[in-house]
């Protein structure tokens, strides 16, 4: 059923802290590792060790240079995956009902048994979050590790998305963003968490926390060099420099 639920009981999602992400790609690789064996299996690769590797990944980590108006530049590592939007067209454009949003927790999923692989949902996503699997012939996307977060066969501490479990800096948090008292909602409130492409109107559930503004502003140190005074010593050094660099 590709009509969107009016409301979901929970809004499960991720909060990604751009201030402490170090761009190590651990979230992307652990995502690939878990999901190529779980609900989304297989996540096919083509020519993985060759000259033109490609494959279906559900999480991608970019690096951007963000410059302030004053010209201060900063490297920001930027993980990008499905934002499990509240009102996304990737669900409503699906002709078969394979692309759907769950009423119980708001997770956006693709049913791999009914997807015809028309790719229209990927066209409808402004975030480029869906990747087509050419071997499997169906669309793949982040499932928020739906086969893990409710899985009683894994230890309790592992019942979070693989990317969250793998992150060595704690830059990724998982929780119910529909509950204002949840830890994730409170960190969004405390840190001015924001939506990607908010003006687009899909109402993403996942939030991003902005890089903190440096409390210590490092200004480039300019070493002052004395103007040449034409002394003999200076001439000697100039001669030595010339002779040695010949």
């Amino acid at each position: 059923m590709t009509c969107l639920p009016k409301e979901t009981k929970k809004k499960l999602g991720l909060v990604i802290d751009l201030d402490i992400c170090v761009g190590c790609q651990a979230c992307a690789t652990s995502c690939k590792e878990w999901n190529t064996g779980g609900y989304s299996a297989p996540l096919s690769d083509h020519d993985p060790y060759g000259a033109d590797p490609s494959g279906a990944w559900l999480n991608r980590v970019h690096s951007f240079e963000a410059k302030t108006a004053e010209g201060q530049a900063k490297t920001v590592h930027f993980p990008r995956s499905c934002l499990h939007c509240e009102e996304p067209d990737c669900v409503t454009v699906c002709p078969t009902g394979a692309s759907y949003k769950r009423e119980e927790d708001g997770i956006v999923l693709v049913n791999p048994d009914t997807c015809i692989g028309c790719k229209l949902c990927s066209w409808a996503c402004p975030y480029g979050a869906r990747e087509y699997d050419y071997d499997d012939g169906v669309m793949k996307k982040c499932t928020l590790c739906v086969d893990r977060i409710y899985n009683r066969n894994v230890p309790e501490e592992d019942r979070v998305p693989a990317c969250v479990r793998a992150c060595p800096t704690g830059a990724r948090a998982f929780g119910d963003l529909g509950d204002p008292n949840s830890e994730v909602s409170q960190s969004v409130a405390a840190r001015d968490g924001f939506n990607l492409l908010d003006a687009f109107g899909y109402k993403p559930v996942n939030k991003y926390l902005p890089p903190r503004i440096n409390s210590v502003q490092v200004s480039p140190v300019v070493e002052k060099t004395a103007a040449p005074d034409g002394s003999r010593l200076e001439k000697l050094f100039a001669w030595a420099d010339k002779a040695l660099s010949r």
Binding site: T92, C94, P95, L120
Partner: peptide, 10 residues
């Protein structure tokens, strides 16, 4: 299956 979602999908 593509004939099923005429309510939302062009």
């Amino acid at each position: 299956g593509a004939f099923s979602q005429w309510r939302s999908s062009w």
